[in-house]
Structures are given as structure tokens and as C-alpha cells.
């Protein structure tokens, strides 16, 4: 284990690097078509369309208030889109009936900005809950999986701690362990670096990369952390508040160098990561 409590790459069971997946960004994992979203009749995003490839690390970026989190909430079904469709792995999600949606929900995990751990449950119970809901595993097996998942995110030994007893960074990692409990095909991250110190933030980035590299998981990250964007993103879309939609799509380095849109360049060039690259 490293000094920050995170496991060293490849040192944890389940992160052993038996990569039997092949990246195939051309095969869509998520398809969003003509999505409009907002709150109480007020439109925040209008006619947004994009596709996320399988095993792709896809960032949704943009300034504060541009609708990143709104888009994410509509993707995972926490909000109902005003119009448009969302499909996962070729199956329609936003207009699916309750049973189909529930079946699809177990194919993806989500890490909330605050971790959103259930405060009355221990870390082990937090990770175990999705397994209790969706599997017929025995209590002993569920506990073993929960211990493994917590170990994968560097929280071995903290299984019986409650969320109030651990730090913000640990909460995020525990939230990630919970999001990974059902070995999802798609994982969503809402501002994973928010509120973390730079070292912990970088380690979390490494963990995200490991998840994709080891399991071929499709990863969607909402963030405005430029260091993370340049370190992780295969592709980004940039949202803009006044345009109420996407103003740029591409790799972060490409956009930073070649985008004709000054808003995109200004956003991405405020990065030390870009200067170094």
C-alpha cells in the first residue's frame, strides 16, 4: 500500500492486470440523442447529442453552472429528460419501463461528489447493499466481496468504520468501492477530485485508470479539474452555459491546441498539465 492509503497499481486482488478486453471506442456504450434537460420548466441543456465508446474514459467538462451535473443526473435516470433519449449498450434507458430500467441500473455504478455513503451503515454494509439487492449470494460471500472491493480502493481494515469516522478522500474511495460492487460495465463519476488534496486526487485518477485498464469499464467523469482531464480523458465534451449545450468535442490536447473556439482554449489552457505536455 502507498503512503496515502491507496494500493499500488497491480498490487490488489482484482487489479492484477489480466486484460482480456480490447478497447473498442467505435462500439457505443452510451448514446445520447437530442437530450434537453432542466429544472422546473427552465431549460439548462438543449438538444445535446453524443456517444461514448466502450471502455472509453469520457469527460464532461465546462465552467460552473453549464449543466454538467444536470447532464449526468439525466444520464443515470435521477432526473427525467425534457426530451431526447439515452441508451446504454444499445438498449433504450430513458423511456424504458421500471423493470428494464432496474435491470440496466445494475450494469452501472455511480460515484457522487460527496461519496453519498449511507451514514447509518458501515463501509462494509454500504458496499454490501447493492449485492444484497441484486444477487442471491450468501452473507459470507457478500462480506468477502465487500472486503475485496474496499481493499481494491485502499480501504482494507476500515470495513467496520462508519462514514462519519473517515476522511473526505476515504469517503470517495468507499463510494467508489460501492459503485464497483456489482462489477458494472459503466461507471459515472461526479466531480471525483472536488475537495481532495492534489496527491489524493492524483491517486484517485490512477485508480480510475486502473479500473478501465483492468476491466475495460466505460467511464464517464464530470469534472473541471484540468489536471485530471489531461491525465485521463480519451475524449471530452465541453458544455457552455450560454449555448446550453456542447461547444466542443475531442481529445483534450487537440482541443487545447487546435480549437477555433476561444472559450474552449481559454478553459483548457489554464492547465499546468497542458503546458508540460
Amino acid at each position: 500500500m502507498s503512503e496515502t492509503g491507496f494500493p499500488a497499481p497491480g498490487s490488489v486482488p482484482g487489479f492484477g492486470g489480466q486484460a482480456n478486453w480490447r478497447p473498442n471506442f467505435a462500439e457505443p456504450a452510451i448514446e445520447v440523442a437530442g437530450l434537453s434537460a432542466g429544472y422546473g420548466g427552465e431549460v439548462v441543456l438543449r438538444d445535446v447529442s453524443f456517444t461514448v465508446g466502450r471502455s472509453e474514459i469520457f469527460f464532461i467538462i465546462g465552467g460552473s453552472g453549464c449543466g454538467k451535473s444536470t447532464l449526468l443526473r439525466n444520464l443515470v435516470g435521477l432526473n427525467v429528460p425534457m426530451s431526447g433519449t439515452v441508451s446504454f449498450l444499445g438498449r433504450p434507458f430513458s423511456q424504458a419501463d421500471a423493470a428494464s430500467r432496474r435491470a440496466m441500473l445494475k450494469t452501472f455504478g455511480m460515484l457522487f461528489q460527496s461519496g453519498a455513503l449511507w451514514s447509518s451503515l458501515s463501509l462494509r454494509e454500504n458496499v454490501a447493499l447493492p449485492l444484497e439487492e441484486y444477487t442471491t449470494l450468501s452473507r459470507r460471500e457478500i462480506n468477502e466481496i465487500a472486503t475485496l472491493k474496499l481493499g481494491q480502493v485502499g480501504l482494507a481494515g476500515f470495513e467496520d468504520y462508519f462514514p462519519a469516522e473517515i476522511s473526505g478522500g476515504m469517503k470517495k474511495r468507499a463510494g467508489l468501492a460501492r459503485a464497483l460492487a456489482l462489477d458494472p460495465e459503466i461507471v459515472f463519476f461526479d466531480e471525483p477530485s472536488a475537495g481532495l488534496d492534489p496527491v489524493t486526487s492524483r491517486k484517485l485518477d490512477e485508480l480510475i485508470l486502473q479500473i478501465r485498464d483492468n476491466f475495460g469499464t466505460t467511464i464517464v467523469v464530470v469534472s473541471h479539474e484540468l489536471a485530471s482531464i489531461f491525465a485521463l480523458a480519451d475524449r471530452v465534451i465541453m458544455l457552455d452555459r450560454t449555448e446550453q449545450g456542447i461547444i466542443a468535442t475531442g481529445t483534450p490536447h487537440d482541443l487545447a491546441r487546435n480549437s477555433p473556439d476561444p472559450r474552449v482554449v481559454e478553459f483548457l489552457r489554464r492547465s499546468d498539465g497542458h503546458k508540460r505536455s
Binding site: V76, L78, M110, A116, L117, W118, E133
Partner: peptide, 16 residues
């Protein structure tokens, strides 16, 4: 309080 801390959303995102 659970709603404010996204704990309710976390349940819904898992289909619970």
C-alpha cells in the same frame, strides 16, 4: 439530511 447528502440519489441510482 440524507437527501441533501445525495444518499437518496445513491439509492435511486442503484435502482433501490
Amino acid at each position: 439530511n440524507m437527501k441533501a447528502n445525495d444518499e437518496v440519489d445513491a439509492l435511486e441510482s442503484l435502482g433501490i
